[in-house]
């Protein structure tokens, strides 16, 4: 059991670390946000499951479960807010598909008419 828990915790930490490396290595703000949002979420899930297996007490499982649920709710919301702020300031390059800019322009146009 300790072995399983250990493997899960190390795996979780590895995903989180790789996400950190990805956030450094990727080329632009948007790409950097992908690992920053996804990595720690699964990482924390794995660490929490590992810790729950090792601790095996109801209070610990309850608290860890809450931690995971709150992380799954909070991490994407954070990324969402960051992404929307970036998009308002920094449009994509011209050759890239950007349906958000297209639709925003269309909505503006409809409001003006």
């Amino acid at each position: 059991m300790t072995l399983v828990a250990g493997i899960l915790i190390v795996l979780g930490a590895t995903f989180t670390m790789l996400a950190g490396v990805g956030a450094l290595r990727f080329s632009d703000v948007y790409a950097r946000m992908h690992p920053a949002a996804k990595g720690p979420t699964l990482g924390l899930l794995l660490v929490a499951v590992g810790a729950a297996i090792e601790l095996r007490s109801l209070a610990a499982v309850l608290a860890l479960g809450l931690v995971v649920i709150l992380q799954f709710l909070a991490a994407p919301v954070g990324a969402h807010l960051l992404g929307r702020a970036i998009h308002q300031r920094l449009p994509l390059q011209l050759d890239e598909v950007d349906e958000l800019a297209r639709d925003l322009a269309e909505r503006d146009h409809r409001r003006d008419v």
Binding site: A19, T41, V97
Partner: peptide, 26 residues
């Protein structure tokens, strides 16, 4: 899907090739 996302991201991070082609879909 979450596991798949992390595995593919981890792969993306450790391989030097850059296959990123970004865009925004509605």
């Amino acid at each position: 899907k979450v596991v798949q996302a992390n595995v593919s991201l981890a792969w993306e991070v450790v391989t030097p090739r850059n296959t990123i082609e970004p865009g925004i879909l509605g």
